[in-house]
Design a protein around this nucleic acid. Sequence first.
RNA 1: GGGCGAGUGGCGGAAUUGGCAGACGCGCAGGAUUCAGGUUCCUGUGUCCGAAAGGAUGUGGGGGUUCAAGUCCCCCCUCGCCCACCA
Length: 835
Amino acid sequence: MGLATARFAMVTAEPTEPTAGTTELYGPGPLEAKWQRRWRDEGTYQVDNDDPRPPFYVLCMYPYPSGRAHMGHVRNYTFGDLITRHRTMQGHAVLSPMGFDSFGLPAENAAIKTGLHPRPFTDSRIDELKSSIERIGAVYDWRREIRSHDPEYIRWNQVIFQRFLATGLAYRRNAPVNWCPGCQTVLANEQVLADGTCERSGDLVSKRDLEQWFFAITNYAEELLDELEGLDWPERVKTMQRNWIGRSEGAEFDLVVADHPDELAVRVYTTRPDTSFGMTYAVLAPEHPLVPALTTPDQQAAVDEFVARVSTKSEIERLSSEDPSDTGAAVASDRGVFTGSCVVNPFNGQPVPVYLADYVLMGYGTGAIMAVPAEDQRDWDFAKAHRLPVVRTVQPPEDWEGEAYTGDGPKINSDWLDGITDVATAKQKAIDWLEAQGLGERKVNYRLRDWLVSRQRYWGCPIPVVYCPTDGIVPVPEDQLPVLAPDDVEFRPTGESPLKAHTGFLQTTCPTCGGAAERETDTMDTFVDSSWYFLRFCDPWSKDKPFDPAAAERWMPVDQYIGGIEHAILHLLYARFYTKALADLGLGPRSVREPFRRLFTQGMVRLGGTRMSKSKGNLVAPEDMVAAYGADALRLAHLFAGPPADDVDWETVGIEGTSRFLKRVWRLSLGEAAPPATPDTAPNVDRAVHRLIVRVSDDYERWSYNTAVAALMEFANLLLRDGTTDFALDTLLLLLAPMAPHITAELWERRHGPDSQVHAQRWPVADAALARADSVTMVVQVNGKVKDRLEIDPDMDEAAAEAAALASPAVQEALAGAAPKRVIARPPRLVNVVV
RNA sequence: GGGCGAGUGGCGGAAUUGGCAGACGCGCAGGAUUCAGGUUCCUGUGUCCGAAAGGAUGUGGGGGUUCAAGUCCCCCCUCGCCCACCA
């Protein structure tokens, strides 16, 4: 080999090169259309449930159909598609379905604005998105397509709901919700702005108690937490879920109300039972049911005023400390009020005053706490504002300058707990004592709350129940499902579901007694639709049940799930809950308790530093890029831009580079860019091919597509220098095929004839012996500075490497006669001579 | 306030186990081909000194461990994301 030879070969090859006029230039347009048509018409990526190959399930989170694809979609589906193609080449039966999360607010809002019914609006958006997904060459088994608003999908959604209802997993209860007086409807937390106003009407949102539907996800809190352990998910996502579930261990016990005619007790929850001797007051949530009983006549006016004020605050506002005026005692003092009553601390028999405060939430624990200002900063601030005493029960370190001390330390001021030197032991002892006295018990609490699933919206899956004056809540029998919303409704900007005004839908008969009854007009949260679509994909043709558990067992769990980090909590948690619940109900396979074995969260596409989005008006249309450079170049540009998990800024994505590379591959493959390798260069090219297979295969496994593309570029440059071989060109096409599927399909066909398809080939395997170079460069350092580079045998041992290094003239010169103090030989990479 | 990341040329990034920092690409500069533009090809491109050979320096800042640190440890700075009164 050698540069001189290669250059010479280039020069001699020149006269045989076709002139510009006869060279067929790389023109991605018609070629990509040809292959996309063929994949679709031949059903290349359709896969049957009885396929004998080992199964592999790859899934991108199904999209909300917002019209033509944007760059985020392109990035997402490029990853999914290349995995589908790569795993297929590795011999798997790859299930790669696609569907659309087609219910939701935007279509309904558009209907209110334009009068166009959400269905045609949504269907045309789906068509647009679907065709632009196909235009980037992403392939799916379209026979399995799911649309959330499909009546068949609605049917099974409702069947599952009925099973949930029958087993108590779905229930209806009064709950404090965000109520917008302007829209006359309930809002999701996400629809309430940070300042407590409605995102649509701008009105101040208040809290209201309303009957709502819930799913008892908290039944699964423990399992949802424990089974995170075994999932191959990004640590970040697992941590977010752990925090969201929020397990805490502590104790619950009663505080008896002092001097009260009735025998009343307030139950409190604490994670720090060891600090009980430091309790100097107690606090109830303003909504606590004992508030009326504990309020004394002289405090009545103050309590009423306080409760009224808190109820106008949204929960978001209450839990937020973003308001800068929220710090300091002056403000804290109006965040609570004395009830006039006292409760007795069972640990020391002392009465302490009972307050109401907005920092205590009815929805967590028991809605009441014992307050220990010395060991809780919130209690400290409140105590200071209300001039309540502070009693430390843990000795802070000598240099402690803070206020509440929450760290470890010896117990003080705590009677029989004094002398214990650590908090953990004291906690256990305090709980043991409570249990022995029959006052309370050990208790685990979760921050996670039951899932509020009802929405006062039209464009969603109807909740299939009726309300009968005699029979109460009656589920619509399964043989009458699906309950579908009527089309002839009027969309008006009242904020209320048009179903409420549709008497034909609203008025019905009770399935039990046959009397007049009213239908539920609420629909389900769209997160319900996305909580089991991946199971339906396994058997979307099922006519008698949501899906066949055996079919689901074959494919599930999803081997590779791909989506955005924005779904790290809600969607992924709900989907996990559904999978467990369906398994327990016998609707899903019992062996599958987790839906997604491996999760990848890809980064966002930004433009000029901000997130690309329609509302920001900074979209770069992928179609323009596809038209100018082709889908393959666009896919490669996304892959090459950086690590898939990182955000990318479209401004820095160099589609020029990947476009140039593909043109080069085109000319190389057609024998136009470089001549065949000579007997001198061929062995080197061969070794490079084997090394390339090792490197690129490894990069695919570890999602390092940017370096895989770099390796392929480097290899193409090598062929340009050293000449081509058939083996080199074929391997280049095979390794590139999942990432740039069109150009590789075309070039493979040209090289091997119409009966051979690149995507049907097996993924190449390197010969380790041939991948081995027969000489490698070893660096020789003196005191850590590079003095020489030696070409050595890759198997050279330490002694030989040391000898070779010391024999180097450059090293001898650097040593200047001095004897080496130490020689560190790490062949074949490096030798360091220390003087 | 808490948690998790990240900081490497003009830019995106590479360095998988502590072992030649800057692979690959963009951009830029010079050259070849071309009537010209585009395309394609070649050469150069961290910074400083130097005509060159070569030398010095260099991964946010400071310290440490090591023959050897972008990588490990400690402190600090900056940026990003998530959770934010959960008792």
